[in-house]
């Protein structure tokens, strides 16, 4: 690990002012410290957010929830209102990582976790995300775990996380504080970027911009389901996951593991009553899988079918065609 200066932020409002050029925020540390040990990340300074507050979940005036950026994944998944009214979020978080990691991982850090592309992790291999201009090792190499849609010729990495996929179906908003003191709101759908020819930039956050909270709109009701297909039953990243909220008035569905961001296509949701294939045909219309990861398209369809089976057997709404 490269040497860095350590600074503790006692107050979130001051954190952006403490951050120096080349510095990074430190939350749970479960992704950043891992990457620093491998020298994939080498910040000159760490601003530790762990004593800066931002660890509360409060009600919004509209009847939703405001989740502080430092709320731990375990606490968010176990919050009574999240369990009861945003169950897809509890389910997604609990499907990820391990008990130990969830006890430390934070809401903000989880959103910003970086890809698990094996080339990104191996500093001997070419990777445009880690080292712009070196090429993409995965394109003609081992691409099985990577994205099938939203990719570019420069990078086919997927966003690996679970929590953000649930936040996407819930239409969450991310609140930030910039270095100049201004604040902004970023809809979750706009937060993660597609790679294009700048795959080293994962999100729209500006340098030094701090995530302060994530807001959930009022509850949608309906049935909340998160299904995750992976190589082992626990403690593994998703090959494909699906977050769904199915209500009388329609279905919302987002996919994880398949794209550089949580993948949600509203026009595909409109075809829910036409069956799983109609939904995934529409959601993955422009997919460009590799020979190694084309199986993810079938897997996505089967997961949607499994969601449909589950919601129908629970005897809810009009059921529709199948």
């Amino acid at each position: 690990m490269k040497a860095f200066e350590y600074v503790r932020a006692e107050d979130a409002a001051q954190a952006p002012g403490l951050l120096a050029e080349g510095g990074k925020y430190l939350a749970g540390g479960t992704n950043l410290l891992d990457l620093m040990k491998l020298q994939i990340e080498a910040p000159a300074q760490l601003v530790d957010l762990n004593r800066s507050g931002l660890a509360e979940i409060t009600e919004t005036e509209e009847g939703g929830l405001k989740i502080g950026a430092l709320v731990r994944n375990t606490d968010l998944a176990a919050h009574p209102r999240v369990r009861q009214e945003y169950a897809v979020l509890s389910r997604a978080i609990l499907a990820g990582a391990s008990g130990q990691i969830r006890n430390r991982a934070t809401t903000g850090g989880n959103l910003l976790q970086r890809t698990r592309c094996p080339y990104f992790y191996d500093t001997n291999l070419p990777c445009n995300k880690r080292e712009p201009g070196t090429g993409c090792g995965a394109l003609a190499g081992f691409s099985r775990p990577l994205a099938v849609i939203g990719t570019s010729e420069h990078c086919i990495a997927n966003y690996p996380g679970d929590m953000a996929v649930a936040l996407r179906v819930l239409d969450a908003t991310i609140q930030t504080l910039k270095a100049d003191g201004s604040r902004r709101e970023i809809p979750i759908g706009d937060f993660h970027r597609l790679p294009g020819d700048t795959p080293h930039i994962d999100t729209v956050l500006e340098s030094g911009e701090l995530i302060t909270s994530v807001t959930l709109p009022p509850p949608l009701g309906g049935q909340h389901i998160y299904l995750k297909a992976r190589d082992r039953q626990s403690y593994a990243f998703a090959l494909v996951s699906v977050a769904a909220v199915v209500t009388d008035s329609g279905a919302r569905v987002a996919f994880g593991g398949v794209a550089p961001k949580p993948w949600r296509v509203e026009s595909a949701e409109a075809r829910w009553n036409e069956g799983a294939q109609a939904v995934t045909d529409a959601a993955f219309k422009d997919a460009r899988p590799t020979a190694q990861n084309a199986f993810k398209l079938d897997l996505a369809q089967r997961l949607v079918q499994a969601v449909m089976n589950e919601t129908q057997s629970a005897g809810t709404p009009e059921g529709g065609a199948a």
Partner: peptide, 20 residues
């Protein structure tokens, strides 16, 4: 794995200074 404040975590993924 150790307990910090009674909760389990991976001590390899925390800096000591974070636990002052």
């Amino acid at each position: 794995t150790v307990l910090v404040g009674g909760k389990r975590l991976n001590s390899c993924l925390s800096l000591a200074v974070m636990h002052d």
